[in-house]
C-alpha cells in the first residue's frame, strides 16, 4: 500500500499504533514472501483491489438510510456517530472517533486521507484505489469542485464544499442528502441507493428511478 501521509497530526505522546495479532501475522507473511520473491506487493494490492467492493460489512448504507427515516437517530448520529452506531448493536459496529457530517443544499462534504488505517472500512468497505492515491488527496484540497466534476458530480455554484482530512483519530462518514422521489421508501430500499462514494462525498446517492 502506498504511504505518503504528509499532514500534521496532533498526537498524544503515549499513543502508539496497534495492529491485532492477526494483522501482525499477515504483515509478517507478506514481508517474508516479498523478500524471498514469492509475491509482489503491487500484484497483491491488485488482487485485493479487485475485491474492494467485497470487503467489509459495508454497514454505512444502512446507517445512512436509518438517519434518513429516523430523525432522533439522525440527531444522535450527528452528535456522536460512534456512540449512535454502536448503540444499534445488531446493525453495525464501528471504531472510535467517527464523525458524521451532513450534506445540505448549502454545504457538500468530502473526505480525504491517504492512510488505510484512517478509513472506516467497517462502515464503507475497502477504500477505492483512487482514495489512497496522492493526486486525489492533493487535488481534493486545492480544487474540490474539479475533483467532483471528474466524478460526475456537479454542484450548484453556491454550495460550499468542505473537505475533511481524516486521521486515525478522527474518521468521517458523509451523510448524503436524501434524494427527492424516495418518500415512503423503507430503510432497506433506501440503503440500496446509498453508494460508497456518496459516503465519502465524491458521489451522490443513486437517483430514485
Amino acid at each position: 500500500m502506498a504511504h505518503d501521509h504528509d499532514h500534521d497530526h496532533h498526537h498524544h505522546d503515549h499513543e502508539h499504533s496497534e495492529l491485532s495479532e492477526t494483522q501482525l501475522r499477515v504483515r509478517a507473511l507478506e514481508t517474508v514472501l516479498t523478500e524471498k520473491g514469492y509475491v509482489d506487493p503491487a500484484a497483491l494490492d491488485a488482487i485485493v483491489e479487485a475485491y474492494e467492493t467485497k470487503i467489509g460489512p459495508r454497514n454505512g448504507a444502512r446507517v445512512v438510510a436509518k438517519a434518513w427515516t429516523d430523525p432522533a437517530f439522525k440527531k444522535e448520529l450527528l452528535d456522536d456517530a460512534t456512540k449512535a452506531i454502536n448503540a444499534l448493536g445488531h446493525i453495525a459496529r464501528t471504531g472510535d472517533h467517527l464523525i458524521a457530517v451532513e450534506n445540505t443544499p448549502q454545504r457538500h462534504n468530502m473526505v480525504v486521507c491517504t492512510l488505510c488505517s484512517c478509513y472506516p472500512w467497517e462502515m464503507l468497505g475497502l477504500p477505492p484505489v483512487w482514495y489512497k492515491a496522492s493526486p486525489y488527496r492533493s487535488r481534493a484540497v486545492k480544487d474540490p469542485r474539479g475533483v467532483l466534476r471528474d466524478f460526475g458530480v456537479t454542484l450548484s455554484a453556491d454550495t460550499e464544499i468542505r473537505v475533511w482530512d481524516s486521521t486515525a483519530e478522527t474518521r468521517f462518514l458523509v451523510l448524503p442528502m436524501r434524494p427527492a422521489g424516495t418518500e415512503g421508501w423503507s430503510e432497506e430500499r433506501l440503503a440500496e441507493i446509498v453508494t460508497r462514494d456518496s459516503m465519502i462525498g465524491t458521489g451522490l446517492p443513486k437517483a430514485a428511478p
Binding site: 492477526t22 507473511l29 514472501l33 514469492y38 509475491v39 488482487i47 467485497k54 470487503i55 467489509g56
Partner: peptide, 17 residues
C-alpha cells in the same frame, strides 16, 4: 467476499503462491 481487509490479503497471498 471478505469481512476484513486482512482476509483479502491472506487470500491474495494464497492465490499468488
Amino acid at each position: 467476499v471478505f469481512n476484513e481487509p486482512w482476509q483479502a490479503q491472506a487470500f491474495a497471498m494464497t492465490l499468488a503462491l
